[in-house]
């Protein structure tokens, strides 16, 4: 006899596999010189002017663009850009109280804003605001810390650029970003997180590789490291750009 005190489900139910191990495996990369394979799609949020979704390894990023929207107040002859980045509360990060944006979220938002301000033709949008919201939906199981933030930021910039294109906002060029890790033994590893010198470079490839975003962190051994890491990051940004180009051409 069934227990009548319990609300039992209908007979044809099934148990969701919550927390079950994901058996799908990612294909190993050819070498340290190529970026990881990524899945990218756009126009997924209907009420946003532009949106995109990117999966790379265990990172899942979503970007939404609202605007250009009119602003109240005094006349401004150029548009302004605001960027907000938020990790889902289940992603652990250093020094976050989950109520306000943490230091890492602020740093990412400010880097993305610097890159976008240089690429968007703000003169075309007077008295307007372009609001970008970035959500990091998933990250590594052990959370986000300083050794992973550059790699995550590189993919956030790439994802946001596609959302900007999706919104139809006029840009000088699509910004793409590359990241390189210089290990303690001096080896360059593209698109890899870890301890060592981390170089993050955002460029506009069609404008003579103009550098719109630069962020180097971690331990370094000298100026040569900086130049090599920057050159390697620029190469990755170009590779990502050609991938984004082919995606956008297919998408049309």
């Amino acid at each position: 006899m069934s227990d009548r005190r319990r609300i039992t489900a209908p007979g044809n139910t099934y148990f969701p596999r919550v927390g079950a191990e994901n058996k799908t495996s990612t294909r190993p990369r050819d070498s340290n010189n190529t970026p990881a394979s990524f899945y990218l799609t756009s126009n997924i949020v209907l009420n946003a002017n532009g949106s995109s979704y990117l999966e790379v390894d265990k990172f899942i990023i979503q970007a939404q663009v609202f605007g250009p929207r009119p602003i109240k107040g005094s006349y401004m002859d150029r548009g302004c850009v605001s960027v907000e980045c938020k990790f889902l509360s289940l992603i652990r990060q250093n020094g976050s109280d989950s109520k306000s944006m943490s230091g890492l979220e602020h740093r990412i938002a400010s880097f993305v804003e610097t890159c976008l301000v240089l690429s968007i033709l703000l003169d075309k949008y007077p008295k307007s605001t372009i609001d970008v919201f970035i959500n990091v939906l998933a990250a590594d199981d052990d959370g986000i810390d300083e050794s992973k933030i550059q790699r995550l930021t590189a993919w956030i910039v790439n994802c946001t650029s596609v959302a900007i294109v999706d919104s139809g906002i006029e840009v000088k060029d699509i910004v793409t970003c590359g990241q390189t890790l210089v290990g303690d033994e001096g080896t360059l590893k593209v698109d890899l997180q870890g301890r060592g010198l981390q170089a993050l470079v955002a460029i506009m490839p069609m404008r003579n590789d103009e550098i719109v975003g630069l962020w180097m962190d971690g331990s370094s051994k000298g100026t040569t490291d900086y130049s090599l890491a920057m050159a390697s990051s620029i190469e990755m940004a170009k590779t990502v750009r050609s991938n984004i180009n082919s995606y956008l051409l297919q998408d049309q």
């Binding site: 401004m76 150029r78 548009g79 302004c80 850009v81 400010s110 880097f111 804003e113 610097t114 301000v117 240089l118 703000l122 010198l197 460029i203 506009m204 404008r207 103009e210 550098i211 719109v212 975003g213 630069l214 962020w215 180097m216 962190d217 971690g218 331990s219 370094s220 900086y226």
Partner: peptide
């Protein structure tokens, strides 16, 4: 490190701001 670039002007829509 850190080595970072940024816009130091008062307003974010600084017309002078260019890439490096």
């Amino acid at each position: 490190t850190p080595i970072i670039n940024m816009n130091l002007a008062y307003n974010s829509n600084n017309t002078q701001f260019k890439g490096l």
